[in-house]
């Protein structure tokens, strides 16, 4: 790119444009989970009894703990943006790292929970699950699909925030130009919102 072109791009930096792209992407993500929520609501409607029985097996304590972890990580993410807006680079970096660590804690919790389920034989394709009534098979099918897909998003979010931390350290994200960090934050909050719905649907409603 010639310096002249580069100069043109500098003038045309449009933060609203970047955020708009991110929001539209978030809608796609929302609808991706939306499809699963549609399936969940239909099957819950068809098999209310079975869903109720199956959801009693969930570990509500771990679920609540994970909700609090994710909500707190959302707080640190939001704070890291507020910090960079005030030019407090070190604080922002610290808060971003804390966010990633909370994400990690969430995932560790998930692993504990899933390995427990697997030990009990409640995993897709297992004989003991296949012998259950259809509604419970579907409940666990949806549980693994939705929570699994959400976990994948947490991992992606952690990676993205990791990149942002590197950018902040290298000075690519600054007090005047933090739209990248803001976009990453939007993504992280969406992951949080999806969990806000997954939590009651799988752990609480019995």
């Amino acid at each position: 790119m010639t310096t002249q072109e580069h100069a043109v791009e500098q003038v045309h930096r449009d933060d609203i444009r970047s955020k708009m792209g991110m929001w539209l992407f978030l809608f796609s993500e929302l609808l991706l989970f939306g499809g699963l929520f549609f399936m969940y609501s239909v099957y819950r409607f068809m098999h209310q009894q079975d869903f109720s029985i199956a959801s009693k097996e969930m570990n509500t304590f771990l679920g609540t703990l994970n909700t609090v972890i994710l909500l707190t990580s959302s707080l640190t993410m939001a704070l890291s943006i507020a910090a960079i807006q005030r030019g407090k680079k070190a604080l922002s970096i610290f808060l971003q790292i804390v966010t990633i660590l909370f994400g990690l804690a969430f995932m560790v919790n998930k692993v504990i929970e899933w390995s427990h389920e697997f030990a009990e034989g409640n995993f897709p394709g297992s004989a003991s699950l296949a012998n259950r009534p259809p509604g419970q098979i579907l409940y666990f099918g949806l549980y693994y699909s939705m929570v699994g897909l959400h976990g994948l998003h947490v991992l992606v979010g952690m990676t993205v925030i990791g990149f942002m931390t590197v950018f902040t350290i290298r000075g690519k994200i600054t007090q005047d130009n933090y739209v990248k960090l803001e976009a990453a934050g939007l993504y992280w909050h969406l992951v949080d919102i999806i969990w806000i719905f997954l939590f009651p649907l799988f752990y609480l409603i019995t």
Binding site: S74, L75, M77, A78, G185, L186, H189, L190, D192, I193, I196, F197
Partner: peptide, 10 residues
């Protein structure tokens, strides 16, 4: 909860 996250955090 999601309304709070949307309006404030986001």
């Amino acid at each position: 909860k999601s309304y709070l996250v949307l309006t404030e955090f986001m």
